[in-house]
C-alpha cells in the first residue's frame, strides 16, 4: 500500500540498528544472535523428559544433554523470548497486533498454512544440518567474516531465487 514507507522503519536505519544489536551481542557475550538454537533446546529437553533412555542413547540428543553447558541453552531461549517480547512491543506501538493469516489473494488460507508448515519443517531441519539459520549461521557468520556465514547466506538466497519461479503463485 501507499503508506508502506511510513508503516515500517527505513530499511537502512533498521539494518543499522540490527547491526548494532548484533555488535552488542558480540561485545557482551562473544557470540552473535541466533534463533534456531532455542527450539532445538526445547526439543532436546522435551525428548529427554518424555523418553530419557532414548535421548541418552541417541547420538543427537546425547550431545546436548551431556556436553553442552546449560548457560548457552538458557541464553538462546531467553534471547528468543526477548524477540517475542520485542516484536510484540513494536507491533503494539504500530497498531499491528491482530490475529490473521497473511497470504497472496491467489491462494487460500489453507494453502498458505500448508506451505507455512512445510517451509517450517524444511527450515528447522536445514538449520540443523547447516549449523544455524539465517541469524546464527548467515548473519552472525558474515559479521565475523566466517566462510560458513557467506556460504550459508549464498545457499539460502540462491535457492530462494531458483525456486521462486516455480512457486510464484504463493506470493504474487
Amino acid at each position: 500500500m501507499k503508506e508502506k514507507s511510513k508503516k515500517y522503519m527505513n530499511s537502512y536505519l533498521a539494518g543499522f540498528l540490527l547491526g548494532l544489536t548484533l555488535l552488542a551481542a558480540f561485545f557482551f557475550t562473544g557470540r552473535g544472535l541466533g534463533a534456531s538454537g532455542a527450539p532445538k533446546s526445547v526439543i532436546v529437553a522435551a525428548v529427554d523428559l518424555v523418553a530419557h533412555e532414548h535421548a541418552k542413547s541417541s547420538p543427537f540428543y546425547s550431545k546436548y544433554i551431556e556436553k553442552e553447558e546449560p548457560p548457552i541453552k538458557a541464553w538462546l531461549v531467553l534471547e528468543v523470548l526477548g524477540v517475542l517480547m520485542g516484536g510484540l512491543i513494536s507491533g503494539a506501538l504500530a497498531g499491528r497486533l491482530n490475529l490473521k493469516i497473511e497470504h497472496s489473494p491467489k491462494i487460500s488460507s489453507k494453502t498458505r498454512l500448508v506451505f507455512a508448515l512445510l517451509g517450517g519443517i524444511l527450515f528447522g531441519a536445514g538449520a540443523q544440518l547447516g549449523r544455524g539459520c539465517t541469524s546464527g549461521a548467515a548473519l552472525s557468520g558474515m559479521a565475523v567474516l566466517s566462510t560458513a556465514g557467506f556460504v550459508t547466506m549464498l545457499a539460502i538466497f540462491g535457492t530462494g531465487y531458483v525456486l521462486a519461479f516455480f512457486v510464484k503463485k504463493l506470493w504474487i
Binding site: 527450515f123 549461521a137 550459508t152 545457499a155 535457492t159 525456486l163
Partner: peptide, 24 residues
C-alpha cells in the same frame, strides 16, 4: 553448510519466513 542452506532456502520460499522472523 551448502546442503543445509539449500534446504533452508526452499523452506524460506515455501514458508515465507526464517526462524527469527517467524517468532516476531
Amino acid at each position: 553448510a551448502i546442503v543445509g542452506g539449500v534446504i533452508m532456502g526452499a523452506g524460506f520460499i515455501l514458508g515465507g519466513f526464517c526462524p527469527g522472523t517467524s517468532v516476531c
